[in-house]
Structures are given as C-alpha cells and as structure tokens.
Computed example of a mutant assay.
Amino acid sequence: MPASPPRIAVIGGGPAGLTFARVLQRRGLPVTVHERDRDPAHRAQGGSLDLHRDTGQVALTAAGLLDEFFAASRPEGQALRLLDRAGTVLVDAPADPDDRFKPEIDRGELRALLLGSLEPGTVEWDRRLRTAVPLGDGRHRLEFTDGHTTTCDLLVGADGARSAVRPLLSDAEPEHSGVVFVEVVLTDVDRAHPEIAELIGHGMTFALDAGRGLLAQRGSGGVIRVHAAFRGPVDWGHRVERGALRAVLAEMFADFGPVLRDVLHRCEDSFTVRPITALPVGHRWEHRPGVTLLGDAAHLMSPFSGQGANLAMLDAAELAELIAAGGPLDEAVTAYEARMFPRAAEAAAEAAGGVEDCIGPDGPAHALVHFQAMTAGNPQHA
C-alpha cells in the first residue's frame, strides 16, 4: 500500500505560503494554508514588487504561473531615478518595455494570481494561530484563537515579521534599523497631480538628503506610493499625534523642492508608519523535525535589498519541490534549510548595508555612485 501523504500546514497566506501551496498541489500533494485575514479582501496588500529572473520568477516557473505573471506585470516599473533634495534629476535609467529581468506587479495582483491557482478550500481564512503543541516525531497540534484545532506532520511558518511559528525554532526578534518609513499615497496622479507624476516617472524614484529621503514608487491604476524615510526611534509613530503627521512630515522635508513637498501636501489622509526592522544578519536555527520557516519569518530584512519577496517565493518553491521529490520528509526540510541559510545571510547583509548607504549621513553620495555604476553597466545587475 502506498504511504499516506504528509499532513502539511502553512501559517500565513502571503507570497511565500501561497507559492508553497501551489507548487505542492502541482506535484499532487495536499496542503492547508491558515490565514489570519477574514477573507481575500480584508485588507489592502500594499505597493508593488519586482520579481527577479533568478529568484521570484524561478518560483513562478515551478508554480506554472510565469506566463500569467508576465501578462499582469509592468516592465516599465523597472525604471529608476535619483534626485537631489531640490528635485534635480541626477540619474535617469528608463526601462526597456521588453525587459523581463525584474518587472513589477502589484502585491494585490500577485496574491490574486496565486490564490486563483489553488484548489478550492486550500486557504482557511480567519485563522490566527494561538499555539503549536509538539506531539513527538515532528508532529504538532495547532490551536487557533477561534477554537479550531488540527494536527500536522510538518508545520511551515510563512507568517512574516511577527511570526507565531518562529519561537518554536529561535529566540531571535526583529531589531530596529534606526530608520522609520511613513507611507503616503497619491491616486489618479496623471490627472490630479501631473507634475508629481512626471517627476516620479513609471518606476522607482529616490530623492535623498543626509539621513532622510522620499522614496516613490509608481503602481498600477494611477497610484504612487511614497515613503518618507528618516532616522527615528522604533516608537516614533506613537510620539506623534495621528492628526499632526502631515504637518510634521512637511516640516521635516521643508527644504526639499516644491514638487517633492507637494507629495506631502497633496497625498491622501492615510499615513502608515513603519519602523524598519530586521532579524540579525545570518539568522539561523538548529534543525528541529516537523517545523521550518519561509520568507520574512526566517530572514526578515530591510527593503533596501529588494529581495525579500523574491527570496520568500524561492524558499517556498524549493521546499515544496524537495518534499515532492519523495524520501523522508525531515531530509527534505534539512536540505532546504541548508540551501536557504547562506543565501539569506548574504541578502540580509546587503540589506543592512543598504540602510546605511541610502538613509545615512552620506546617503546621497553613496546612492549616486551606485546608480551611476548601475547605469554604466548592465541594469540587470542593479
């Protein structure tokens, strides 16, 4: 008689958890994803992601979704600009419309693509993990806040920065980088804010000064998201009254150029404060049967690497394919962790350096050297 397939439970329905589930299902293995959101429309998914040819696109190939991704992606989103604080363009690297190295896709569109590829009922919504109780032999009993319980042979934590699964493997906690982002949004930019739309362009634009900057990204549907980035304590958002955020930011960037200042005056009333945190560079754990981590749960890093979602999806695809190849489940997990730890450490070190290079006292000079070197060579290596 053939052995029963392992019972695999995933905590978290982001890009990592959904990619993992999709690849397993393509290989004929059952899986359940437990997601804390009430439903797919419970909350906005945020801005845009660039999926790289050697990481995120490898995962989408394993998932059988690469063509669908290209159909939904925006190659023009690969464009890069560097401005000084006055708004003068220092470096302009437009995107080739046929370049498929790392085209952009909105996070919401990527999630919808992955969700639509899964078998009905794969994701159990409104399920927040309360505790995971070891039962021996790598099995765990999962207890959720709604009273639901289940058991599994493999527990996969794909539940992000504040992972509820991570404590089973590691005592590490995300540490504050010293940088705070405040995200603001402008909509209908081409009609309502044409000067801002022209300055930002179709991709990413960095306007930097010592220790601060405005980091803008064009999304689909006429949306631009801008992160006001600066040095501040982890609780900065609690020290400023919500209604005063616009005025505080306007004062902080008062010496930036008029179009850049307009971003903070004309943006929507919603302000999202995000202290930038990261797990220690080289974070790893001693292997434990029956549980492992993917993506930010395993190697949270600052966004300055540009690789977070890409590595998360590659983690997911590799672990799923190793499991599907057959053999002992624990050997597949061990092999995955051996691959993941060194590449995550390399990316995390790059991300930590990126914080200093971009939002440090010499940020503008470092960024100029980097952008000039990138545009002088192959943009694919940026």
Rank of each mutant, 00 (worst) to 15 (best):
G47R: 10
R7A: 13
G77S: 11
G211H: 00
V165T: 11
E183D: 14
A316H: 06
N378S: 14
L311K: 03
H148C: 00
V248P: 01
G354M: 07
P233E: 05
L260C: 06
P103D: 09
G17M: 08
G243Q: 04
A376V: 00
A228C: 15
I276D: 01
D39S: 15
P75G: 09
H202T: 14
V133W: 01
D98C: 10
L245G: 00
F206T: 02
L319I: 05
T187Y: 07
A367L: 03
G295T: 07
I200H: 04
P6W: 10
V263D: 08
G363Q: 04
T205D: 00
F206H: 15
A344C: 15
L264W: 12
V179A: 06
A86I: 00
R261N: 08
Q25R: 14
E76C: 02
A112E: 12
L329Y: 13
A21V: 05
I276R: 01
A210Q: 06
A71D: 11
R225Y: 00
A21P: 12
E35N: 12
H148Y: 14
G13W: 06
T150Y: 01
T149V: 10
A197Q: 06
L245W: 15
P167Y: 07
H366L: 02
G308N: 05
D159V: 08
I196K: 11
L186R: 15
S4W: 04
V281C: 10
F20M: 10
E35C: 09
A164Q: 13
A192H: 06
A365Y: 00
G243V: 04
A250T: 14
I224W: 07
A250Q: 15
S4R: 15
T61E: 14
P289W: 12
S163L: 06
A344V: 08
G354H: 00
F256R: 04
F271R: 14
H52N: 07
R38I: 02
V165I: 12
A161T: 13
A132P: 11
R266A: 15
T375W: 05
R85D: 03
L113M: 15
A59K: 08
D99H: 12
P167K: 08
M1Y: 01
H42K: 11
D153I: 01
D106R: 12
T19H: 07
E321R: 14
V133F: 04
W125Q: 06
G221F: 10
D54W: 01
A132L: 03
Q217E: 09
I105L: 13
G327V: 12
V240T: 15
A247K: 14
D330M: 05
L322S: 11
D137V: 00
H287W: 11
A317F: 06
G232A: 15
G360S: 01
A365M: 04
R212Y: 00
F230Q: 06
L215V: 15
G360A: 07
P194R: 13
T334N: 00
A373Y: 02
F371C: 05
D296H: 08
S48F: 06
V91E: 10
D54R: 08
P97D: 01
R162S: 11
G222R: 06
R141A: 14
L300E: 06
G160M: 04
M301F: 08
T122M: 08
A79T: 09
L18T: 03
L114H: 10
V156M: 03
F69D: 07
H140F: 15
A112V: 05
